[in-house]
Amino acid sequence: MAHPPSKSRNLKKKEPRSLNLIPIMNLFIVVIPMLMTVMVSVHLAMIQITLPTVGDEAQVNENEEPPPRIILVLQTTGFEIVVGEDVEEEIGLLEAEEQFGNFDYESLNNRMKSLKEQYEKQYTVDILPDPSVKYDTLLKSIDICKFNGFQNIKYLTSSRKIYRASKK
């Protein structure tokens, strides 16, 4: 007896069904322009400063010798670093006019790094800017101090002058 023809002969080859991507495309068309409008191209940051207060000295532990006060003076002619009562170092301007604002930020960075190694427990730097110094210089100096571990930046708003003490 002959076998009947195989049923699979009549089966048509099914093509794989393509995924319907139209809904997801619709979603993308809505979402991507919305995200592009709110996208942050520049990341803003905040730098905190503190103001000098009367009770600052009272927090120092009497058993330990307090680290010397560090004052960074921003002059139009460069930086002055005052440690304790003495002007420890002056960092002049860079010679080349095309240098970054003429201020030697790299030397300041190196000096602040060595000061942090020397006075590990000092976290505060007082900043005294000259009225003619640019705001950009002030912010970069604060940034360098914070980067080297001096988290508390005290903005000295008084107009008293720091005079260079004569080294004997």
């Binding site: 520049v42 990341h43 803003l44 940051a45 905040m46 730098i47 905190q48 400063i49 503190t50 103001l51 240098q99 970054f100 604002g101 201020f103 930020y105 790299e106 960075n109 912010l139 970069k140 604060i142 940034d143 360098i144 980067f147 903005y155």
Partner: peptide, 20 residues
């Protein structure tokens, strides 16, 4: 106002700040 903040543009590049 005892707490004062300065607004800046944040970067991760130190050389940009140091001007190198």
């Amino acid at each position: 106002f005892a707490n004062i903040y300065f607004s800046t543009i944040h970067t991760d590049n130190l050389t940009e700040v140091l001007g190198l």
